[in-house]
Design a protein around this nucleic acid. Structure first.
Ligand SMILES: [Zn+2]
Ligand SMILES: [Zn+2]
Ligand SMILES: [Zn+2]
Ligand SMILES: [Zn+2]
Lengths: 161, 161
DNA sequence: AAGTATGCGTTATGAAATAACATAACTGGA
DNA sequence: TCCAGTTATGTTATTTCATAACGCATACTT
């Protein structure tokens, strides 16, 4: 990502083995409770997001989709991403055209990200939108969703810069 | 924009005539002060943004570029947009892939938008990022810029909905 | 079993942005 | 004024990102 970045450590290393299986199983359980279907393509894309240690581009997911190296067709992945976003299992980061698995426990959070311009890491955090909502309501708006993406340097990259 | 929207009134009708000329002249004056060059393509794209009453897509600008109907080449417009963003004369709205002229007076503001999902209007406002910065610094981040895009219904569309 | 809704596979296309390189114009100093 | 360095533009082509459209399959409902 960053042109001058040599940091390989990620704040969110991808999941593997049991941790990965657990995370997918947790998603499956949530789906059952709401009668949503975690179909094979949806499960596969979720796996890929969870395995990654950085935001994934849609076409990275497409390329990595088949265990045998066969890529997916774009609509397969974009449909899965729509589903995962709708259920809160994944988020799109607008300023990167990339996707991450949700790292927050609660279901009713609003996503916000700290994006490192050096190493590309994207840290999800729980934002405090109260001031923004107050301003919006003062202007007569009815706010439904908020996208917040802060860019800067993560702790690791800040040190070396 | 909105599929069910019949509102034609815009919160920010495009500038015309003298108001447009004044706005462009003000930008030119600012450029002179900082020894930046408001060249013909840059001036033309700024005009188009100011004339519009809604966020403009890059390829809308490309199509509208020539007074004689001749479109611009994509790099012409994208370069101009880079310049206008750099100087704070325009903002990109990430969640729309679209661009607006800056509506705030001060130079050192951070852009934030209230985007109506019904009529497509994008209202710029001055956000309060203090809570977010506090959270980011607590996590060890050095924040450089923040993008905030709230989506919902503008006052006009809220009434009719 | 029949009807309805949802999801998938596939082909093709559309929309958004940039790479690369040559040319032109401005800038500051000799 | 001339030159060198820098910045901006013109142009062609390509890359990246995302969706339309259609037919088939699968799963719920009655
Ligand atoms: Zn999340
Ligand atoms: Zn970093
Ligand atoms: Zn602004
Ligand atoms: Zn509206």
């Amino acid at each position: 990502m960053g042109l001058d970045c040599h940091h390989t450590e990620s704040a969110h290393p991808g999941l593997e083995g049991l941790a990965l299986a657990d995370a997918v199983a947790a998603a499956a359980t949530k789906c059952e409770r709401t009668r949503e279907r975690l179909t094979p393509p949806r499960r596969r894309v979720l796996e890929l997001l969870l395995e990654a240690d950085a935001p994934m581009k849609a076409y990275d997911l497409i390329a990595a989709y088949g265990q045998d190296g066969e890529p997916a067709k774009p609509p397969t992945v974009y449909r899965a991403l729509d589903f995962l976003e709708r259920l809160g299992f994944a988020h799109r980061i607008e300023s990167l055209n990339a996707y991450v698995p949700c790292r927050m426990e609660g279901t009713s959070h609003r996503a916000a990200f700290l994006i490192c311009e050096c190493c590309g890491a994207a840290q999800e955090f729980e934002p405090d939108f109260a001031p923004q909502f107050a301003a919006a309501e003062a202007a007569g708006y009815a706010v439904r969703t908020v996208t917040l993406e802060a860019r800067g340097l993560c702790p690791a990259c800040k040190v070396e810069s």
